[in-house]
């Protein structure tokens, strides 16, 4: 029996949410930045522990102010993936504030924190920055190279099944 789960990708604009999604669903990547407006939705089936899970992934338009997200986009989400750009500190300086807003509004929805574009930076430097800001990230990934993209979504799916 297949279960379908809604996952929402959140974060500042230009952090690579759409690229992560395309890499995961279509295994493609483009250097060109194309703004997402509103929401772009894709689905992909994954098998976790012999069980089929259909991930319905909502790639929501990026913003630096999470209070501006339309509730209808986040409604019914089983998991949030908070993406930041590891090469731009401005995209994770306010991470704690945005997280607290999510936790307040959606206390039961787990949040996975992903630092994307690690191909552009010195990983140790990013890890040091995150440590200084006490940010517990799930993965450092690269939509460009595919690093940790598959693992990220599979891990999210596995956690969803565990919590189901």
């Amino acid at each position: 029996m297949s279960v379908s789960k809604k996952i929402v990708l959140l974060g500042h604009f230009g952090v690579g949410k759409s690229s992560l999604l395309r890499r995961f669903v279509e295994n493609t990547f483009s250097e060109n930045y194309v703004v997402t407006i509103g929401v772009h939705i894709m689905k992909k089936e994954v098998i976790v522990s012999n069980q089929k899970v259909t991930l319905i992934i909502w790639d929501v338009e990026g913003t630096d102010d999470f209070t501006k997200y339309r509730p209808s986009y986040l409604m019914g989400a089983s998991s949030f993936i908070y993406v930041f750009d590891a090469s731009r500190t401005v995209t994770y300086n306010d991470l704690k504030y945005n997280l607290s807003h999510l936790k307040e509004k959606y206390p039961l929805v787990p949040v996975h924190i992903i630092g994307n574009k690690v191909d552009l930076v010195d990983k140790n430097e990013v890890l040091e920055n995150l440590k200084q800001q006490d940010i517990q990230h799930s993965y450092l990934s690269s939509a460009k190279t595919g690093e940790n993209v598959e693992q990220l979504f599979e891990n999210v799916a596995a956690q969803l099944l565990e919590n189901a």
Partner: peptide, 8 residues
């Protein structure tokens, strides 16, 4: 009754 804006 729900409204969803700008669905691609």
């Amino acid at each position: 009754k729900q409204k969803f804006y700008c669905i691609q």
